[in-house]
Design a binder for these strands. Structure first.
Lengths: 231, 231
DNA sequence: CCAAAAGTGTTCGAACTACACCCATGG
DNA sequence: CCATGGGTGTAGTTCGAACACTTTTGG
């Protein structure tokens, strides 16, 4: 990698060795009442044919957040989703090609806003339930584990879960999201009391009729903030 | 930076431009009943003469955590302190020399264990109260702000503050640490009740006599864990 | 009229807050 | 003996957990 000064393919030279830097994105959504995340099938070596997180190299003049958003847009066709930096993974040897340091991001979006299509260097893109992941390239299993823990623990003290819902939603839908995330049933009355006490949602006044039962009130988030921290 | 292929000073060449990667460490301690952090005076350009976080470039085969620990050991002469990854700062232009992406760490240690001496490329190393920081190099003011927020918010749901105390301590000392961190007085009885209920500390059986008053019971942490998360 | 989700209050225990006095020591 | 920090309990309030029935609609 570093012994090819004569090779005009490698015109970027430094006094000391430099690692490559990538961003990888763990994009969660809820599909079929299960927490799922987006993976791409690698079209190139290393790990060709394995599944991996969407991501790629940071352009030399590109901010890290922008890189994550760009890579995601290239993979999912979606912009303007929730994105937060998760942590940086840089164990030597995690990429067999060269030293690669990866800044991981946690992303959330409602299923409705996602239209996934395979990008250039991906053979395929697909959703997998967090509970049934395929073998993964690099250390992406570790990255996903950290992302999942972070998401779950943020439920307790933030409104992060609202990022998994579209702009308007019913309290039933909200509860389903929480139940999926914590993988347990929640008492309906307590949940609704809690949700209203947040002072983060307001009724739109509309009703949503879906199926043969009483219509539900429709809510939206009050603030423009992506997420707010509680108490 | 990248146009010097003929220069044997720059023997490390790549197909695409690579950023440099550093670690920077925000090391907090409590001195004189104030939360203070370690800064070094830069001996070289850029920002020569300004104060900056201790840190430096990641060796090409070095893990990120190891790099942070090494840089810190070089500056403070202390090993085995609490270190957690804080976040990665990579805005283009944050370093005027070249693209530098910095993985920031939060470190904590009791004053007793620190013997700070200026390292090689630092003109001086010194402690500054968080409330009275000098002008800082790069985006280090931002990094410190993030570190401080993280420390304060972790007080609520972890035992991170114990990392600011030596192995044995009295409840009075523990309370002083918390009062310094939250910058407020805490009710003594409630605090002690809370501390005991944690089930994280045990009396050593010894008494500590300091000054003209009743001796205090000495405690230590029960677990070997650095920090535990509460509830 | 039946199935299905929407909607709604009360009671109990646990956890947190506020608050004041005696104790042991050094000087 | 006095100044200083060490050490202790109780009452009131707030917050979360458990728990069952009526309402409205579509078919």
């Amino acid at each position: 990698m570093t012994d090819s000064r004569e090779d005009t393919d490698q015109p970027y030279c430094y006094r000391y060795p430099h690692p490559a830097v990538t961003t990888d994105v763990v994009l969660f959504t809820i599909r079929d009442d299960a927490l799922q995340l987006l993976l791409i099938e690698r079209g190139n070596e290393p790990f060709k044919g394995s599944w991996a997180l969407p991501g790629g190299f940071v352009d030399i003049d590109e901010d890290l957040d922008d890189c994550a958003a760009r890579e995601l847009a290239e993979e999912t066709g979606v912009e303007n989703l929730y994105l937060e930096q998760l942590g940086t993974f840089g164990r030597p040897g995690r990429d067999p090609r060269e030293r690669v340091i990866s800044v991981a991001y946690l992303a959330l979006a409602p299923e409705e806003q996602l239209s996934v299509r395979a990008g250039d260097d991906a053979a395929a893109a697909a959703w997998f339930p967090v509970k049934a992941l395929p073998p993964l390239a690099f250390d992406h299993d570790e990255v996903i584990a950290v992302a999942h823990r972070r998401l779950i623990s943020k439920l307790d003290y933030s409104t992060i879960a609202f990022q998994l819902l579209p702009e308007t939603f019913t309290l039933g839908e909200l509860q389903q999201v929480y139940e999926t995330l914590v993988d347990a049933e929640i008492d309906k009355r307590n949940f609704r009391k809690w949700a209203q006490a947040l002072e983060q949602i307001e009724a739109t006044g509309e009703l949503r009729r879906r199926g043969k039962h009483r219509p539900a009130r429709v809510y939206r988030l009050t603030g423009r903030d992506r997420i707010t921290y509680l108490k």
